[in-house]
Design a protein around this nucleic acid. Structure first.
Lengths: 164, 164
DNA sequence: TATTGTTATACTCTATAACTATA
DNA sequence: TATAGTTATAGAGTATAACAATA
């Protein structure tokens, strides 16, 4: 960045990738929260359901590790989903301390709808961008994700102390 | 998005621009919070200082409007900065109810350092990307910011209800 | 009657630690 | 002795409403 780093006129926030990511990411998350509300779940639940759709039957501890969430908090999330009839706690085959978490039929019915919500939001976000630009954008963002060590299903905002 | 919207194998979160933005934005904000901590301020204070560097002497209400923050919360933010000796409340020239907020000399000394923190983080984030890709990325993100109606200094996460 | 700054209250979240039952 | 799940407690942060002074 040029020598514009002066007290008199600091560079506008909107010229920084970091700020744009934070601004757009926060807005995106907020919208997703609203769009998902009619289905009775929040983004974190969606992430959990998507993860479970790939790998049913894991313990809460393993789920917590995979999503970067503390196990204490996982209890409440599984509670939420259980109360909505979307997962069930079965007995773990090899460890009697642990539960094995499985999606219910209701979850298999809800997941496509939730995915459609996400698809719609994605489409609305990108609807003024042609296919080439979209591909470029995704590729650049994935490179950043890779470079900053993001793990596939882990949302940093759910890990610990509050950001802004 | 293809017909992969099925319960059996929902598309990975990392294939969605919305998720990548949220993930990268949250990580970015978290890092900025840590990098700024030695200076004794948080990202929201930085945003406020940067805004004040352009337009000193505004009322708290006008600042609140400009940054998309409720005036009740602005009281505490100005308190923070005042206690750190970075701003001062002067009497407003035309409205005896209002204060006029001004940066102090200490703030003019601190701002360049804070900007350097932001510059360093930006550089670390982009250090494996060549100049052309950086320009492309910024341009694409700014188009998204424009399309989603982001206002220059407004961070959606500070507006109201909690996101994820 | 509306607005600015302020304060107090209540509420939501989350972090921490502790407990139990198993390993 | 360590780990999985759970629960309780406390703490941070935020929203809401109300108030005094002034417009």
């Amino acid at each position: 960045m040029s020598d514009a780093t002066q007290s008199a006129h600091p560079p506008a926030l909107a010229t920084r990738v970091s700020f744009l990511l934070s601004q757009l990411g926060s807005d995106s998350a907020q919208q997703f929260t609203e769009h998902l509300a009619p289905l009775g779940i929040q983004p974190v639940h969606f992430g959990l359901l998507v993860h479970l759709a790939r790998t049913d039957g894991q313990s809460q501890q393993r789920l917590a590790d995979a999503l970067g969430i503390h196990r204490n908090r996982m209890v409440g999330l599984i509670d939420d989903l259980e109360h909505r009839g979307l997962v069930e706690r079965r007995q773990h085959p090899s460890d009697r301390r642990a539960h094995a978490i499985y999606l219910t039929a209701a979850a298999h019915e809800l997941l496509p709808r939730a995915n459609r919500v996400a698809d719609d939001q994605e489409a609305a976000l990108l609807n003024e961008m042609d296919a080439a630009d979209r591909a470029t954008l995704i590729s650049l963002l994935q490179r950043l994700a890779d470079h900053t060590g993001q793990r596939p299903d882990v949302h940093p905002g759910l890990q610990g102390q509050r950001r802004t």
